[in-house]
Simulated assay, not measured.
Amino acid sequence: MSAVEDRLSELGLSVPDVAAPVAAYVPALQDGRLVHTSGQLPMVSGQLVQTGKVGDGHGLVPPDDAKALAQTCALNAIAAVKSVVGDLDRVERVVKVVGFVASDPSFTGQPGVVNGASELLGKAFGEAGTHARSAVGVAVLPLDAPVEVEIVVAVRD
């Protein structure tokens, strides 16, 4: 087990099996030293955990729930990276995180939601988990997911 997986275990988490793609793409692809993941949804055991738009009103996914879903997306992104590189200790740096939040039109808290992914990556990779990031509000995501996260990591040989 890698040091990254040990840190996740201390948080009560484990790297899941790679989520099966829902269309024509691969979960992750390495190009040189960079591994790019496809957008990862909050899937657990092949099932989308929650659906809907994020916001503060009735019938919407509460921001705190969406933040937890972003963490699940990041865990799935880590699994996608592992499927390509084998040993997560080869990850030298998390370079970039892009988080998409299916948002109610009045919701502007996308950065707080995507913090769920960023905070997990920091805990899992330590200093190497510090990254550049975008948090984007969108009208809808695949399968009506509330959140989607993709990452780019640099790996050592």
Rank of each mutant, 00 (worst) to 15 (best):
M1I: 09
S2Y: 06
V4D: 03
V4F: 06
L8P: 00
G12M: 07
L13Q: 03
S14R: 14
S14M: 08
D17Y: 11
V18L: 06
A20T: 12
A20F: 02
A23G: 12
A24P: 00
V26R: 14
V26W: 04
V26E: 14
P27T: 09
L29M: 09
L29P: 00
D31N: 14
G32N: 03
L34E: 06
V35A: 01
T37Q: 00
T37R: 00
S38G: 02
S38Q: 08
G39C: 07
G39D: 08
L41S: 10
P42A: 06
M43C: 04
V44R: 15
S45R: 15
S45T: 13
G46D: 06
G46R: 14
Q50V: 13
V54F: 09
V54Q: 10
V54E: 06
G55C: 01
G55I: 04
D56T: 11
D56Q: 04
P62C: 08
D64R: 13
D64L: 13
D64N: 14
D65I: 14
D65K: 13
A66S: 05
K67F: 01
K67W: 02
A68V: 06
Q71R: 15
T72V: 15
C73Y: 00
L75Q: 03
L75C: 04
I78W: 11
A79N: 08
A80H: 10
A80N: 13
A80W: 13
V81R: 01
S83N: 06
V84T: 12
V85R: 05
V85T: 11
V85Q: 05
G86F: 09
G86W: 04
L88R: 05
L88I: 04
D89M: 09
R90S: 07
V91P: 02
V91Q: 03
E92W: 07
R93F: 02
V94L: 13
K96V: 07
K96Y: 11
F100W: 15
F100H: 15
A102Q: 11
S103W: 05
P105M: 01
S106R: 13
S106P: 01
F107H: 09
T108S: 12
T108R: 12
P111R: 02
G112T: 07
G116P: 01
A117L: 00
L121W: 03
G122T: 14
G122K: 14
G122F: 12
A124I: 08
F125K: 00
G126V: 05
E127I: 09
A128F: 02
G129W: 02
G129P: 01
G129Y: 01
T130C: 03
T130L: 14
A132S: 07
A132K: 12
R133M: 11
S134F: 06
G137T: 10
G137A: 15
L141T: 10
L141S: 13
L141A: 13
P142C: 11
L143E: 08
D144C: 07
A145Y: 08
A145Q: 08
P146F: 12
P146L: 10
V147S: 08
E148Y: 06
V149K: 14
I151E: 04
I151T: 09
V155S: 09
R156G: 02
